[in-house]
Design a protein around this nucleic acid. Structure first.
Length: 490
RNA sequence: CGAGGUGUGGCGCAGUUUGGUAGCGCGCUUGAUUUGGGAUCAAGAGGCCGUGGGUUCAAGUCCCGCUACCUCGACCA
């Protein structure tokens, strides 16, 4: 067995230095680069192409459930943020404020939106008169700014791209139903398109969104055992409706405040993708969102007939609806193999004179690092089949890894040991905030989601281990109120 | 925001202890030979050493400030 050669541009060891591995991968594969302003990132074409595919698929799901896209302004009067007490307390520390414009000091400072509940609330108040105007189901694809202290590409940047849905309803039930429906859509998207298994459930009071009545989260386990919140959905009750006076005249002739929801997911999902599937060689992209699904590497491309055969194969695959590119640069085949593996292209096809003579090609699966020989004649069908297979295999292996790393804990020590070893923890919790805070300060693990013991809604994750395993609060030992998933989080 | 680390051709680094002509590897350009797991040879191009100030005859090197990035905390949907 030959040792893997060390290269000057080698990426950090994924086992020993996961954070550095992540940074190396995103920079070296040209997904992103750092912007000139602290905490900002440039999404380069390869990274942006992934985002475009995410947008495309998600947007279809939003439209299919009756939502429409719109766009609200970047600038928000500073006073808007103050209208909802908890909201301002949550966001004030991290907003960027514009105080000067056009060479003059502004009478009222403008904030650069950290999220758009407030402007949208203001507009909904104007647009909604009657119960006939409801529901309003709007989504926007936008950028938001949050001045975070620690920033990392994709995971936490000063400015990021996301979608935020904002809906208004006549009744509590309908608004809650919407909130949970969207939670379900996120779960479906992450699992089916990004091949990331997730836990869904309600957030604790401590972890909920500033201004929400209830927050629901989608949590995924990264390869280092930490959890990444990959999307959230909030039920606001009438909090924002009252703050922005969003009222309608109901069929019974009475004025009522609407019930609102909001839900969001961001470019952070690309971070989740990388940290769920990547390996020592770099990225592994699920075929459904990979900008390039198949890369053709010509062997001895100057030999007569090779590039023609490559062009034929490329157009054959392209016509079959496969995203395919051929690498005809002057680099050696070995260089190209490594490069495209690092970039996570799910399938590689090697095509050289020997293959042409024998009417075959060599396929290489990025996820399993297997070479497969097959006839040129049936290549489209086989490639399509393999792409589907890779999509499933990525999900399966992520799921299996996650299942092996969820531990039941009944004491704080067990909990701490488990999370320190890169596990998620299923534990009982009495419901007291003081216990939750103590667990956080002792173990660095936070409550990610409350697991659903009763299976009352199919969208919520049930405890992975039997609930009899947790009868008491992991912190105080009193009778448990909820079963909670604890983990260190990004 | 706290502790620690790092900023030197595009990238990765040495040089800083002990101040005295800016170096190496990769990449890049040109040409030739190569091509089935990061090719070889030859000839080239490319640097106010992160930034502002100070000490000195002389600063990449010493002193002070600032800034960016990395790690760990704190903070944070």
């Amino acid at each position: 067995m030959q040792e893997e050669k060390q290269f000057v541009n080698a990426i950090a060891d994924i086992e020993k230095n996961f954070p550095q591995w992540f940074t190396d991968v995103v920079i070296k594969t040209k997904l992103v680069d750092y912007g000139p302003v602290k905490g900002t990132m440039v999404m380069r074409p390869y990274g942006y192409a992934i985002w475009e595919r995410i947008q495309q698929h998600m947007n279809k799901m939003f439209v299919a459930t009756g939502h429409q896209n719109a766009y609200f302004p970047l600038f928000i009067p500073a006073s808007f943020l103050n209208k909802e007490k908890e909201h301002v307390e949550g966001f004030a520390p991290e907003v960027a404020v514009v105080t000067m414009a056009g060479g003059e000091k502004l009478a009222e400072p403008l904030i650069v939106r950290p999220t758009s509940e407030t402007v949208i609330g203001e507009m909904y108040a104007k647009w909604i008169q009657s119960y006939r105007d409801l529901p309003i189901l709007i989504n926007q694809w936008a950028n938001v700014v949050r001045w975070e202290k620690t920033t990392r590409p994709f995971l936490r940047t000063s400015e990021f791209l996301w979608q935020e849905g904002h809906t208004a309803h006549a009744t509590e039930e309908e608004a809650m139903q919407e909130t949970l429906q969207m939670l379900g859509i996120y779960k479906k998207f992450l699992e089916e398109y990004l091949a990331i298994p997730v836990f869904t459930g309600q957030k604790t009071e401590k972890e909920k969104f500033a201004g929400a009545v209830a927050t629901f989260g989608v949590e995924a386990m990264m390869k280092d055992g930490k959890s990444l919140q990959s999307a959230t959905s909030h039920y606001f009750g009438q909090n924002f409706a009252k703050a922005f006076d969003i009222q309608f005249l109901d069929a019974d002739g009475k004025h009522k405040h609407v019930y609102t929801s909001s839900w969001g997911s961001s470019t952070r999902m690309i971070g989740a993708l990388i940290m769920t599937h990547g390996d020592q060689r770099g990225l592994i992209l699920p075929p459904k969102v990979a900008p390039i699904q198949v890369i053709i590497v010509p062997i001895m491309q100057k030999k007569q007939g090779v590039l023609e055969a490559v062009a034929n194969l490329k157009s054959k695959l392209h016509n079959a609806g496969i995203r395919v590119e051929a690498d005809q640069t002057e680099n050696t085949p070995g260089w190209k193999f490594n490069e495209w593996e690092m970039k996570g292209v799910p399938l590689r096809i090697e095509l050289g004179p020997r293959d042409i003579a024998q009417n075959k090609v060599i396929l290489f699966r990025r996820d399993k690092l297997e070479k497969i020989e097959l006839s040129l004649d049936s290549v489209e069908e086989k490639v399509k089949e393999l792409l589907e297979n890779i999509q499933c295999a990525l999900y399966e292996s992520a799921l299996m890894r996650r299942q092996n790393r969820i531990v039941v804990a009944n004491t704080e020590k067990e909990l701490k040991d488990a999370v320190d070893n890169g596990n998620f923890v299923q534990a009982g919790w009495c419901g007291d905030r003081s216990c939750e805070e103590q667990i956080k300060s002792n173990s660095a693990a936070s409550a990610r989601v409350i697991l659903d013991e009763t299976n009352k809604n199919v969208v919520f994750s049930t405890p992975p281990h039997p609930i009899e395993a947790n009868t008491v609060c992991v912190c105080c030992g009193k009778k448990k109120k909820h079963v909670v998933l604890f983990a260190k989080a990004y």
